[in-house]
Protein backbone atom coordinates (compact mmCIF):
# COMPACT_ATOMS: atom_id res chain seq x y z
CA UNK A 1 0.00 0.00 0.00
CA UNK A 2 1.72 3.26 -1.11
CA UNK A 3 2.18 5.71 1.72
CA UNK A 4 4.25 8.77 2.61
CA UNK A 5 4.82 10.83 5.73
CA UNK A 6 5.31 14.57 5.24
CA UNK A 7 5.37 17.84 7.17
CA UNK A 8 2.45 20.21 6.57
CA UNK A 9 3.89 23.46 5.22
CA UNK A 10 0.84 25.74 5.49
CA UNK A 11 1.19 27.81 8.64
CA UNK A 12 -2.42 27.48 9.70
CA UNK A 13 -2.32 23.74 9.06
CA UNK A 14 -5.11 21.81 7.36
CA UNK A 15 -7.83 24.33 8.08
CA UNK A 16 -9.81 26.73 5.95
CA UNK A 17 -8.41 27.22 2.48
CA UNK A 18 -5.48 24.76 2.66
CA UNK A 19 -7.86 21.99 3.79
CA UNK A 20 -10.27 22.74 0.95
CA UNK A 21 -7.46 22.78 -1.63
CA UNK A 22 -6.16 19.46 -0.31
CA UNK A 23 -9.59 17.76 -0.30
CA UNK A 24 -10.42 19.03 -3.78
CA UNK A 25 -7.19 17.51 -5.07
CA UNK A 26 -7.87 14.24 -3.24
CA UNK A 27 -11.33 14.05 -4.82
CA UNK A 28 -9.79 14.14 -8.29
CA UNK A 29 -7.73 11.02 -7.63
CA UNK A 30 -8.94 7.63 -8.88
CA UNK A 31 -8.24 5.66 -5.67
CA UNK A 32 -9.38 5.90 -2.03
CA UNK A 33 -6.84 7.96 -0.03
CA UNK A 34 -6.51 8.41 3.72
CA UNK A 35 -4.65 10.86 5.93
CA UNK A 36 -3.50 10.29 9.51
CA UNK A 37 -1.70 12.32 12.13
CA UNK A 38 1.31 10.80 13.84
CA UNK A 39 0.03 7.62 15.50
CA UNK A 40 -3.62 8.52 14.83
CA UNK A 41 -6.37 6.70 12.98
CA UNK A 42 -6.53 7.36 9.22
CA UNK A 43 -9.51 9.29 7.83
CA UNK A 44 -10.99 9.73 4.36
CA UNK A 45 -8.90 12.36 2.55
CA UNK A 46 -11.84 13.17 0.27
CA UNK A 47 -13.95 14.39 3.20
CA UNK A 48 -13.37 17.98 4.28
CA UNK A 49 -15.20 17.35 7.55
CA UNK A 50 -12.99 14.34 8.33
CA UNK A 51 -9.82 16.26 7.47
CA UNK A 52 -10.87 19.17 9.67
CA UNK A 53 -11.58 16.90 12.63
CA UNK A 54 -7.92 15.79 12.43
CA UNK A 55 -7.04 19.36 13.52
CA UNK A 56 -3.64 19.25 11.82
CA UNK A 57 -1.43 22.29 12.48
CA UNK A 58 1.30 23.74 10.31
CA UNK A 59 4.60 21.92 10.82
CA UNK A 60 2.93 18.70 11.98
CA UNK A 61 3.75 15.31 10.48
CA UNK A 62 0.99 13.46 8.66
CA UNK A 63 0.87 10.17 6.78
CA UNK A 64 -0.89 9.71 3.44
CA UNK A 65 -1.92 6.27 2.25
CA UNK A 66 -3.74 5.07 -0.85
CA UNK A 67 -5.51 1.78 -1.49
CA UNK A 68 -3.68 -0.47 -3.96
CA UNK A 69 -4.68 0.29 -7.50
CA UNK A 70 -3.68 1.98 -10.68
CA UNK A 71 -2.31 5.45 -9.99
CA UNK A 72 -2.09 4.89 -6.22
CA UNK A 73 1.60 5.76 -5.86
CA UNK A 74 1.22 8.82 -8.07
CA UNK A 75 -1.82 9.92 -6.06
CA UNK A 76 0.12 9.77 -2.81
CA UNK A 77 3.02 11.71 -4.33
CA UNK A 78 0.75 14.38 -5.72
CA UNK A 79 -0.97 14.95 -2.38
CA UNK A 80 2.33 14.81 -0.49
CA UNK A 81 3.73 17.57 -2.72
CA UNK A 82 0.63 19.63 -2.04
CA UNK A 83 0.99 19.25 1.73
CA UNK A 84 4.61 20.33 1.50
CA UNK A 85 3.55 23.56 -0.23
CA UNK A 86 2.40 26.59 1.73
CA UNK A 87 -1.22 26.94 0.64
CA UNK A 88 -2.03 29.93 2.83
CA UNK A 89 -1.30 32.50 0.17
Amino acid sequence: MPQRTVTVASRIGLHARPAAVFVNKAKELPVPVTLARDGGAPVNAKSLLAIMTLDVRGGERVTLAAAEGEGAAAAVDELADLLETDLDG
Binding site: A20, V23, N24, N44, K46, S47, L48, L49, A50
Partner: peptide, 8 residues
Protein backbone atom coordinates in the same frame (compact mmCIF):
# COMPACT_ATOMS: atom_id res chain seq x y z
CA UNK B 1 -17.92 21.30 0.22
CA UNK B 2 -19.01 20.52 3.79
CA UNK B 3 -22.68 20.41 2.76
CA UNK B 4 -21.91 17.77 0.15
CA UNK B 5 -19.22 15.96 2.11
CA UNK B 6 -19.09 12.21 1.33
CA UNK B 7 -18.80 11.23 5.00
CA UNK B 8 -21.73 13.46 5.88
Amino acid sequence: MMAEDPEL
